[in-house]
Design a protein around this nucleic acid. Structure first.
Lengths: 210, 210, 210, 210
DNA sequence: AATGAATGAGCCTTCATTCAT
DNA sequence: GATGAATGAAGGCTCATTCAT
C-alpha cells in the first residue's frame, strides 16, 4: 500500500501559513498543524525553514518563467506580448495565489532571499525587453526613462496580489477578462484613447467582479 | 545640560529597523541599539512593540490625510487632482521613506493592524472619489469597473516604495518630476495619446534617474 | 531504553519550588533545574506557569474531596466525622506536604486562583455541614454563629501547614495520633471536659513529637 | 508652609499593595501610584523594597509586643490572659488589617524575613507561657504536648486574617465580641462545657456578623 | 516517515535600582 | 523631596532544530 508522499501538502500548507502571517510570523508548528503532522516531522522534508520559502515559490516561479520564455520567442507585437504577460500573471495568481502573494511580499526581506530577488530582477528584464521593443516599434510612447516605464508595469501587475482573491477552485482562465481590463489601463491609461483601438482581449464587465 | 527627549529618535530608529527587517523580523534590541539605549529603556516610551509600529506610521499618515483633505476641497479638474495626489505621495515617500515602506509592507499582516488597514481603505476611497468624478466629467474613460480603476491607481502609487529610494537629505519637492512622469503613465498609459495633450507638470528626463 | 514521561517529576519539582519560594518567587528555571531539564522544555507539558500551580494542587485536592464525599455519606456521629476530617487532612499533609502548603498559602493571591478559592469554599461547606449537624444533634454547643465555628475549625486545620513537617518518607497514617490530639483541642478546647469523655481516637503522647 | 511628610502614606500604600498581591507580586510602581508619586521617589524613603516589608509590619508588631509585655506583667488568671490575648489580636487586626495580613502571609517566605520569623517565634513563646501557666494552675487540661496546644492557639488566632475583614473605619474595640466568641471556642471547644462556666467577656451574637 | 520530548538561543516585557536635573 | 529617564538583570515564553525511539 503506497503511502502518498506529503511533500506537496507540506508546501501548500507552508504557502498558506506564509500568506497569512508572513515568513517571519509563521511557525513550523503552524505549518505542521495544517498538514496534520508534528513539527519535528517536517525535518524529514526540509533542512531549514528557509527551504520552505524557496519550495513555496519555486514551482510557480519556474512555471512563469518557462511561459515567459515561450512568450519572448513568439513573433507578435509588443502590445500583444504585454497583454499576454498580464494574462500569464493573472493565471499564475489564480492557480498559485498564496505562493504568488508570498513571493511579492517576501522578496524585499533582508537576510538571504537572494533567490527571490534575483527572480524579481529577471522578471523586470523581461518586461524591459517588451517595453523597449514596443518603444522602438512605435507601439509605446515613453515620456521618460524606460526604467520608470518598466517599474510602472511591474507595479501594476504585482500590486494585484493585494486585492485580487481568486475564487477557491477557480480555473486557469477564469480571470482573463480581468487581466485584459487591467492591461487596458496599463496601456492607454485612465484617460487614454478609446478602448476600441486596442484590438483583441475583449474586456468583459463581469470580469471585474472580484 | 538639558536631557533631550528621545521619543523622536526612538520612532525614527524603529522605522529604519522595521524597514530593514520587517516588523516581525525586527528586534527591540536592534532598535534600542540604533538609539543608543538599552532595550528595557524603550518601555519608558511604549507599552508594547506594536506601539512602535503605530507610532512609526502615525505622523506621516496623518500628514498625508490632512493634505488629502485639502486636495479634495480644491476646485480643480480630476486630472489635476490626480496629478497632485501623485506628487503628494512622492513627497511623502521622500520625507518619510522608511515609514511609508513599513506602512505598505505591514498593512496586510494578520494580527491586529486594523489601524493600518483602515487607513488603507480610506485612502482608496479618496482615489475612488477622484476617479468617479473624472469619469463623470468625461476626463477619464473607464472600460471596466471603477473598482479596478481605483486599484490600478493605488497599485501604481504604492508599488513605488519598492523601487523609489530618495537620496538621503532630499527635499520635499526634489522628485516632483518623477511623480509627474509616473502620473503620465497612469493617465495615458504606455501607448497613450501624446504627452502634450496633458497640460501642466512637465516631465523632465532627469527626474527618472533613480 | 524507554524514555519515561517526566510530568510527575515536573509537578513534584514545581510543588517543592512553590513551597520554598511561593508562586511569585518561583522560577521556571528553578523548577526545570530540579527536574534536570531546560526551562523551555517545561512547555512540552504546560502552557503557562499558572498551569503548574493548578497541576500541583489538583490531584491532592481531588483526592481529599473524593474522601470527603465518602465521609459525608457515612452514617456516624458528627464528632466522629469531625475526627475523621482531622485525620484525612493530616494524612493529606503527610502524603502531599508541599502541595498542601502551596494550596493554603496561594489561595488568597489576587489574580486568577478562582480554582483554588472555589475549592477552599467547598471545603468550608463540608465543615459547615458537619458543624450544623453536630449542633442539631446536641453534640456541639455553639455560643455564636455557625460561621465563626466553621472558620475556627478550618483555621485550626489549615494552620497546621505552618508547623507540621512530616518526616520524609512518612506513611499515610503515621500522624493519626497528632490528628486526634489536635481534634481533641478543637472539640473540647484548652480547658474543656476531660478527654475520657470523647470516645475513640486515643491520643498518644508520642504523636506530638513533631 | 510645612510639607507633610509622606512616609506614613508610603507605608500604608505598601501595606495595601502587599496585602493585595503579596510581597513578590507587588511592585514599587504600584505602591508609588497609590501614594501619588513616581517610583523613583520612593528611594528618598527606603534603600530597598525589603525595607517596606519591614516598615509595614514594624509598628503594629511593636505595638502588639508592647501590649503583650503589659499583659504578661498582669496578675490575672491564665484564662483571662488568654482572653485578653485574643482581644489584643483582634484589635490589632482591626486597626492594622493589611499589615497583619502581610505579616502572617509573608513570614514563611524563604529569603531573609528573619525579622518576621523571629517575631513569630517570640509570639509563640508568649502563648506558651500562658499555656504552661494555665496548665500548672489547672485552668487548662492538656491531653498532649504543650507544643501542639500552643500551635493550636496560635493557629486559631492567625487564621483570622483569612476571613476577618474589619469594616473600614472600624474602631479599636468594635470586634471584641468576636474575639470573645473565638476565644470561647479555643478554650472550651466545639462540644465543650457550657459557656456560662467561662466568666467574663460575654459573647454577643452580633459580634459574629463579619 | 513520524513522534514527542528536549535543546538552546533569543525575544518581549518587567522591575528594582540609580542618577542627573 | 521629586522627577523621569535610564540601567541591567532576570523571567516567562517561543521556536527552529535535533534526536532517540
Amino acid at each position: 500500500m503506497p503511502r502518498p508522499n506529503r511533500w506537496r501538502d507540506v508546501v501548500r500548507a507552508a504557502a498558506e501559513e506564509f500568506r497569512e502571517y508572513g515568513y517571519d510570523g509563521s511557525t513550523l508548528e503552524g505549518i505542521a498543524d495544517r498538514v496534520g503532522m508534528m513539527k519535528g516531522s517536517l525535518y524529514n522534508y526540509i533542512d531549514t525553514k528557509e527551504d520552505l520559502l524557496i519550495a513555496v515559490t519555486a514551482e510557480p516561479v519556474e512555471q512563469l518563467f518557462s511561459e515567459l520564455r515561450h512568450l519572448e520567442r513568439s513573433d507578435i507585437a509588443a502590445v500583444d506580448r504585454l497583454r499576454a504577460l498580464f494574462r500569464l500573471n493573472v493565471q499564475l495568481f489564480t492557480e498559485h495565489y498564496p505562493a504568488a502573494f508570498v513571493f511579492i511580499q517576501e522578496r524585499s526581506r533582508k537576510p538571504q532571499n537572494e533567490g527571490l530577488r534575483g527572480r524579481d530582477h529577471e522578471y523586470a528584464e523581461v518586461v524591459e525587453r517588451i517595453v523597449r521593443d514596443g518603444a522602438a516599434r512605435g507601439e509605446f510612447v515613453l515620456p521618460g526613462s524606460t526604467k520608470v516605464a518598466v517599474r510602472y508595469i511591474v507595479g501594476v501587475i504585482n500590486s494585484m496580489v493585494y486585492w485580487f482573491h481568486p475564487a477557491p477552485g477557480a480555473a486557469k482562465n477564469d480571470y482573463d477578462g480581468l487581466a485584459d481590463e487591467l492591461f487596458a489601463y496599463a496601456v492607454r491609461g485612465l484617460a487614454g484613447s478609446p478602448l476600441g483601438q486596442i484590438e483583441g482581449g475583449e474586456v468583459t464587465r463581469e470580469a471585474s467582479r472580484n
